[in-house]
Amino acid sequence: MDRETFTENLTKEGFAETVVVTREANTSMDVHEHPFEAKALILDGELHIRVGETEQAYKVGDVFHLPANKPHSERYGPNGVTYLVGRK
C-alpha cells in the first residue's frame, strides 16, 4: 500500500493521530502493550511482531494492526524500521 492511500484510510477509520516511528537495526522490545489501537504502514526496513506464539514479519508496503492493550513484542530488521502509525 502507498502512503497517501494509507493516510486516507486512517482518516476514514477514525485514526486522528499519526506519527512516524524509527527503530534501530537489530534491536527489539520485550512484551508490552499500548493503551491505544495502532495501525501502521512500513515505510522502510523490516519489523517482526510476536503476539503469543505467532510471529509475523512486515516489510515495506505492509500494514499491521494491533488492538489496544494487546500484549506483543517487536524485533527490528538488519536495517531497522520506519513506519507511519495511526493511533486511536
Results as ranks from 00 to 15, higher is better:
P35S: 08
R87P: 02
G14V: 06
V31F: 04
K59L: 10
R23Y: 12
E46L: 04
N79A: 12
L43P: 00
T18V: 12
E4I: 13
E33C: 04
K39L: 04
N9D: 11
L41Q: 02
R50D: 01
L84N: 08
A38I: 01
G80A: 11
Y58N: 07
K39V: 04
N9E: 15
V19C: 00
E8V: 12
T27H: 09
T27P: 03
S73Y: 02
Y58L: 02
L41C: 00
S28F: 13
F64N: 06
L41T: 03
N69A: 10
N79D: 14
H32K: 05
T54A: 02
L47K: 00
T18F: 03
R75M: 10
V63S: 05
F64I: 12
Q56D: 10
I42E: 00
T82V: 13
E4Q: 15
D44T: 04
T18H: 08
S28M: 06
A25T: 07
A25E: 12
V85M: 08
I42R: 05
L41I: 05
T5C: 05
L41G: 00
E55T: 11
G80I: 07
E74C: 09
A16D: 09
L43E: 04
E4W: 06
T27D: 09
D62T: 07
A40R: 02
D62S: 09
A40T: 03
R3P: 01
N9I: 08
E8C: 06
A40F: 02
V21F: 09
S73R: 10
N79T: 14
R3K: 15
D62F: 06
F36A: 04
K70D: 06
Y83W: 14
A25D: 08
L66Q: 10
L10S: 04
E24Q: 14
H72D: 03
T18D: 05
A57M: 08
A16H: 10
I49G: 01
R75C: 05
S73D: 11
Q56H: 07
N9M: 13
H65Q: 10
N69F: 13
V85W: 05
S28G: 15
L10P: 00
G61L: 11
G14L: 06
D30K: 15
E74V: 07
G52K: 02
P78N: 14
A25I: 12
T82C: 11
K39P: 01
M1E: 09
P78M: 10
L43I: 06
K59A: 12
L41A: 01
T11K: 14
L47G: 00
E46K: 11
A57I: 09
G14T: 05
H34Q: 10
E53F: 01
H65D: 12
G86K: 02
I42P: 00
V19S: 14
